[in-house]
């Protein structure tokens, strides 16, 4: 374990570095949110934690989901929450202390849940590390060697069109990773699965139905929220301090 020189010599894996960076930001601000008792600060910490989470999602290659996370969550949901905070922010409610007993109970229960979940997460040996990069590298090397061998055999220096076409997606994979394309996600939502074409012949409709259900759901929610949150006009009219609100 005590190999400090290795730190200088070995190649640092930047994906890993960024993973640790973003996950520490996400976890750190989530923790800060729990510890803080001021609701305005909590909202701010939540924004940072969620933004860092979107960074984590980018790191898994789900670019569209990450973007949506940033837009809907950070841009929408949290702004909604901050509105709520502002609407209810009176001096007495900005910071409310909880009893020490509740804290200790929550920490004990939460701690044991965390221990359980972490243990489960690390219980599958194959999940502890990823051989994706090594595999990809091996694939590229094999393809390159094959092409070099072919070139040497034909005694030429230019790539043929077929070879270039074979090499291009591989190099793109090395350079850009393997992101889920936005068009794939969109087509999946309207019922066409380009990533698994074999599913189309079976009368499989992709995610069209859930998509519709969610849209109807959103509509219902909007109506419901508007109904719940509307002020009771008659009540406000009758109470004298209603105007003060």
């Amino acid at each position: 374990m005590t190999n400090f020189p290795l730190l200088l010599a070995a190649e640092i894996n930047w994906h890993t570095v960024f993973f640790y960076l973003t996950s520490f930001i996400a976890c750190g601000f989530a923790l800060a949110m729990v510890v803080s008792s001021n609701v305005v600060r909590m909202a701010f910490f939540l924004v940072l934690s969620l933004a860092a989470t979107s960074g984590l999602i980018f790191l898994t290659g789900a670019h569209f989901v990450g973007a949506m996370q940033l837009m809907i969550y950070v841009g929408g949901t949290v702004v909604l929450l901050i509105f709520g905070v502002m609407l209810t922010a009176q001096q007495a409610f900005i910071s409310m202390k909880t009893k020490a007993g509740d804290w200790i109970l929550a920490l004990i229960v939460g701690g044991s849940l965390l221990a359980l979940l972490t243990q489960i997460a690390f219980s599958v040996p194959a999940w502890r590390s990823s051989d994706y990069q090594a595999r990809l590298q091996a694939e590229v090397t094999a393809a390159e060697e094959e092409i070099i061998a072919a070139m040497a055999a034909d005694n030429r220096t230019e790539l043929t069109a077929a070879e270039a076409a074979k090499l291009r997606p591989l190099l793109a994979k090395v350079k850009y990773g393997q992101p889920e394309l936005t068009s794939q996600v969109g087509l999946g939502l309207v019922g066409v699965r380009v990533d698994k074409p074999e599913l189309d012949s079976l009368g499989y409709s992709g995610y069209l139905l859930p998509f519709e259900i969610v849209s109807v759901h959103l509509l219902v929610v909007l109506v419901g929220a508007a109904y719940l949150a509307r002020s009771k006009r008659s009540a406000v009219m009758q109470t004298p301090e209603g105007d003060a609100r």
Binding site: L6, L7, A10, E11, I12, N13, H15, T16, V17, F19, Y20, S23, A26, C27, A30, L31, M33, V34, M42, S49, T53, L56, T60, M96, K97, T98, D102, W103, L105, A106, L107, V109, G110, G111, L113, L114, L117, T118, I120, A121, F122, V124, W127, R128, S129, S130, D131, Y132, Q133
Partner: peptide
């Protein structure tokens, strides 16, 4: 820092955020 991260690391971060959320729900008034 030189080894690639695996699925477990992501699951652990998810678990941490989950537990933080639960503790938040249990302690905020």
């Amino acid at each position: 820092l030189t080894e690639p991260v695996g699925l477990s690391h992501f699951l652990a971060v998810g678990a941490f955020l989950f537990v933080t959320g639960v503790v938040c729900m249990a302690t905020k008034r």
